[in-house]
Each structure stands twice: as C-alpha cells, then as structure tokens.
Amino acid sequence: MLQLDQIYKVFYEGTPDEKIALNQLQLQMNPGDFVTVIGSNGAGKSTLMNIISGNIFPDYGTVKINGSDMSSMPEHKRARKIGRVFQNPLAGTAPTMTIEENLALAYNRTKPRSLQFGVTKKRRDFFREQLEILHLGLEDRLQAKVGLLSGGERQALSLLMATFTKPDILLLDEHTAALDPARADLITKLTKEIVAKFQLTTLMVTHNMQQALDLGNCLIMMDKGQIIFQANETEKPDLTVEKLLAEFQRIRGEALLSDRSLLA
C-alpha cells in the first residue's frame, strides 16, 4: 500500500545547523495495516509525515502508494489518496464555514471540484449519517460555524473529514496531543472505530507510548531519522511501555528520558 524507499532528507545543508532529518528510511505498509510511530522530539516523525503527504519533498528516495511513484507529486494531487489529521485542532477545519460546508470540502477530496452546489439535499443526508458515527450530536448542528465548536469536537470533525471518503492512506499526526485527557481518550476511541469501520491503512505518530501500544497492529520506534525498532503483528501484543524503554536503552545506550516524563 505505502512503500518508502531510502528516504533521505537533510535540513539547512551546508550550514552549522545542518540536520539529517531522515536517513535512508525504509518503510513498507500492507493494506489494512495500522502502524503507530513513537520517538523523541527531533526523531523525524513529523518530517516523515510531511514527506508522505507531499508537504515537503525528500532529497533522495521514493514514495510509492499502491505501487505508483508519488515522489514528485505536489501535495494537493497526492491528497486524492491521503487523508490527514493534524495535531492542532484548528488546522483541519475552516472556522468561518459551517459543519456541512466543511464536510462538502472534504467530500471533494477524491474528485475534481465543479460549479455544482457543494451542499445538496442528498449530500446533507449523507453528512448527517456520517456525523452520527461521532456520537457528539453534530448531526443536528449542520449549519453551525466550525469556529464555534470546542477543540475536541473540531478534532473529531477533522478525523471524520479525513476518513469518510476512505483514503488509501490515513496519516494521524499526534492528533490527540493538544486535547485534555478525556477528549484525547474520546478521539482515540473514535480513531479505533473509524479505522476499523473503513478498514483504513493508517500511520499514526504519537508521543504517548500507551496509546501507541493500545492502537494498531504494528509499532515502529524512530530515532535520529531512522527506524531503530519495529514490532510486527505477532510481536506487538506482548510489548509494554517498560519493554519499549528497555529496548530503546539497549539499542541507543541511553535512556529515553524525554518520553518517560510523558508517561505520567
């Protein structure tokens, strides 16, 4: 489904700030895989997301989706195959537009936009049906401006907007990190349900190790632009937070301090 081959990306090349963000990264995802990505700050997780979505381009290497090479395709074209939820709840929706207008925008992700009306009666019924999945009562507030929703509601809406058109790849970029624990749990639960319902191939970045263990069938740990540890379907169920930390220490010879503080 998704295939990353020898991805190499360096920032500020040739200056004292030079930083290799991704170093010869290899990743292969099969249809239906739900891979969670953990790693400390600066490990290259966000760069990885941006390279897959086409927000930035690798210096070397290829990105393939469904076998076709997308390496030089701009973001808006790649978006036909990719759904994405951002960390910031404000980033995934248009605040001055209504809930149904936002859904209409998302609805057009897979097809070219024309001069027909974005919200029709038929589509409105469809949107209402989809919003019911969230159990937040948003289906009764179709005409409400998204700017009036709370952060949790907006993030739930973003998640729905990114998924209800069944993307080939779903990218979740620390999408619960900016929410309070209760809202984060809600979004985590919705993520689980929606990914299962639409059978989406998903790549999720998180700072929360417990979340990384709870969700998905595979787990990868990144450090300094490389994947340093990988757990597949058979290995992942046995993992615990302690095992992950010990694994990191064994590989790198240093403690994963920055993430330990996040476990509380």
């Binding site: 979505s53 973001e75 808006h76 074209k77 978006a79 036909r80 990719i82 994405r84 951002f86 404000l90 980033a91 995934g92 929706t93 248009a94 605040p95 001055t96 537009m97 207008e101 936002n102 209409a104 925008l105 998302a106 057009n108 992700r109 897979t110 936009r113 974005g118 907007m161 990114a162």
Partner: peptide
C-alpha cells in the same frame, strides 16, 4: 466557491483536501 472560501480561512487544510 467553497474551496475558495476555505483558502482564505485555512489554506493548509484545503490543500490536504486536494484543492
């Protein structure tokens, strides 16, 4: 028209929806 309005509102988001 909707995507035009969204460009002024949040253009990163519209790009992620293939506009």
């Amino acid at each position: 028209g909707l995507s035009l309005r969204a460009v002024g509102d949040n253009d990163g988001m519209v790009r992620s929806f293939s506009a």
